[in-house]
């Protein structure tokens, strides 16, 4: 059966398509999160697989631009333009607006309108509360482009407070050991710091050097994380009974030898699967994720009410399967435009 197109309406796949450098909106000459240098890009958030240096022009939230400048240096793009959440920008006959995604500080969904239809490119997102950024806003649309990092029903992230309580319980039971928590430098680190403060932990938290810059930047952008100290120079005795945050690559490697009999923890959505945790030598897996879990993914598809869903980043096939079961015309983004007519 051929898809019927109402008169005067252009099909979204005719103006939004997958190119080798990323998702491309032709009438606006605009790429979304391109992985290679392009003339004009809208960047949903500052993680390196979405935000690259070397574009001609970058549109993003002020926070994302600041994060990119901190990671890549001030000259990371030819030109930059900050867009406030909710502000609309016209690019030819395309209207672009950013809506909060709830993923990390500065994260946004790109809302694109053209030819009478609206496409929302969510970038990465989650639905639960995050003390470091505004909550995800469901935007009703014709096509919803969703991530699927945790697109399997075995991923059901528990409550953050529950996981932080487990961390503090281990801390209480092991007063002479260091607890070293593996965290991503951008987002997870600062969110965990805030969650610790909310749980009443007010002692200084020690940070690996690779986490210090972005944590300072978060402070400048108004996200207070409480007292932090460098872990790298601290004496072993001072780190007994301390909580140390470090990048995942450092927690079980040579860097960790400076710590006092460390308990290796890791804060990540992957920690819900035991074998994953054990492979990384993790003793205390904390399921704290900046991505939507399975239930959040399905709830989001219901909330945005899009008749069509394009799935990218992760386990596309399972989410496509589940969305089709909900009566949604879902497909993997990589395949959009490559299918035979009527498939």
């Amino acid at each position: 059966m051929t898809q019927s197109v109402p008169a005067g309406r252009v099909r979204p796949e005719d103006w939004l398509m997958v190119r080798p450098e990323g998702l491309y909106c032709a009438p606006a000459d605009l790429h979304v999160d391109p992985t290679r240098p392009v003339a004009r890009a809208v960047v949903t958030h500052g993680h390196a697989d979405h935000a690259r240096a070397g574009h001609g022009q970058v549109l993003a939230t002020a926070e994302t631009l600041a994060i990119m400048a901190s990671r890549y240096g001030a000259g990371f793009a030819g030109r930059t333009q900050a867009l406030a959440l909710g502000e609309t920008l016209s690019l030819g006959d395309v209207r672009l607006r950013l809506a909060p995604a709830g993923h990390i500080l500065g994260s946004a969904q790109a809302v694109l309108e053209h030819g009478g239809s609206r496409v929302v490119v969510s970038g990465d997102y989650k639905r639960r509360r995050d003390p470091t950024c505004p909550a995800f806003e469901p935007v009703p649309c014709d096509v919803f482009v969703t991530e699927a990092t945790f697109g399997l029903p075995v991923f059901r992230h528990p409550d953050d407070a529950h996981e932080v309580a487990r961390l503090l319980e281990q801390h209480r039971r092991n007063p002479d050991r260091t607890i070293v928590v593996g965290v991503y430098a951008l987002g997870k680190c600062q969110r965990l710091l805030r969650l610790l403060r909310e749980a009443g932990y007010d002692r200084p938290v020690h940070l690996h050097g690779a986490l210090e810059g972005l944590t300072r930047l978060y402070g400048e952008l108004g996200v207070e994380v409480g007292p932090v100290e460098p872990a790298t120079m601290a004496a072993r005795e001072r780190l007994a009974g301390a909580i140390v945050l470090a990048p995942p690559s450092a927690i079980a490697d040579r860097w960790a030898r400076r710590l006092a009999d460390p308990i290796v923890a890791m804060a990540s959505g992957w920690m819900g699967v035991r074998q994953r945790a054990r492979q990384r030598g993790v003793e205390l897996p904390l399921v704290i994720s900046d991505h939507a879990d399975w239930d959040e993914l399905l709830a989001t598809l219901r909330d945005v009410g899009a008749p069509r869903v394009w799935v990218t980043h992760g386990r596309e096939e399972a989410l496509v399967h589940a969305a089709r079961g909900m009566g949604i015309d879902a497909r993997a983004l990589a395949l959009v435009g490559f299918e035979e007519e009527g498939s």
Partner: peptide, 20 residues
């Protein structure tokens, strides 16, 4: 179908069942 994909990913029947 979702169970099969999940079991393939997790690799342990008790754990897959517990999570799903």
């Amino acid at each position: 179908v979702l169970f099969t994909w999940s079991y393939d990913f997790v690799g342990d029947l008790a754990e897959t069942t517990a999570l799903i």
